[in-house]
Amino acid sequence: MGNQKYTASELMAIMTAKEFRDWEVAFVGIGIPLVAGITAKRFHAPNLNIVYESGCIGPQKYRVDFNVGDSSAADGALCLTSEWRVFSDMQCGYYDVGVLGAAQVDKYGNLNTTAIFGSQDYQSPKVRLPGSGGGNDIGSNIGRVVVMLRLEPLRFVEKVDYLTTPGFLDGAPDARKRAGLLGSGPAAVVTDKALFRFDASTSEMYLDTIYPGVDVQDIKSLVGWELKISPDLKVASEPTDEELAAVRASDPANLIMGGVAARKRLSGLDEYIEVTIKNSGK
């Protein structure tokens, strides 16, 4: 992936956006998932309704959120209610699709967002991560779950250090039902290099789609188990200009995907406010 006109993060957001369908209700977690949700609303799924765990149902997406509880999460919402209420609605099965990030994933789609142990343990880990937040609740209860994380060394592992969010647990056909879980488990794992899905009979993750210019061997070398490849492996199409425009307008100051460097490029708060309002459509 050399001299192309889009970044890996942008393609990742676009590939995730395609997992949303129009008129669905989507429960969306923090970070690039939010950008993907906004992109979908601005592109192929204008009637997608997003739900945030702070208690916001069906907001207009005028501006990007940095937290699911920013005031922006409530802009023009259909319903503003409580956190316990939206989690209860999730448990009732009202939400079609959930999207969340993770630091580690295993071959059955179990996620870790709690701690990377390294040579140590839960109480004194190498890296302490935020914890479940609403991630576990999404993975436990929603029918179709899309996971987003970068395909980097030590992220796709045989066994996660800490199982925060349930995928297919030990992979046994009835593992989720035996544990008492309601949702049917992960449907896709979207990364910056490829998209993975799960085998219906074995619950094991396999390589479904590679991005333009990516080599299958490179993917295999970054996955910590013997990765199975789809017999009809697909290659993602290059993002169109319209898709790129939608993803860029979703995060106009590029602060979610561009991080510290993008923040430093801004002259100050006034420029940020100006860019946000200009791209808001309101």
């Binding site: 316990w84 989690f87 999730m90 448990q91 937040g133 576990n136 609740d137 209860n141 969010t165 879980l181």
Partner: peptide
């Protein structure tokens, strides 16, 4: 989890000792 804590506060507000949830199972 967030739903787990939410249920702890729902139970607290109802003045009952606990609440049941379908979150966190199997993890």
């Amino acid at each position: 989890s967030n739903a787990g804590i939410s249920m702890r506060y729902l139970a607290g507000s109802l003045n009952i000792p606990f609440m049941a949830t379908k979150s966190m199972l199997g993890t």
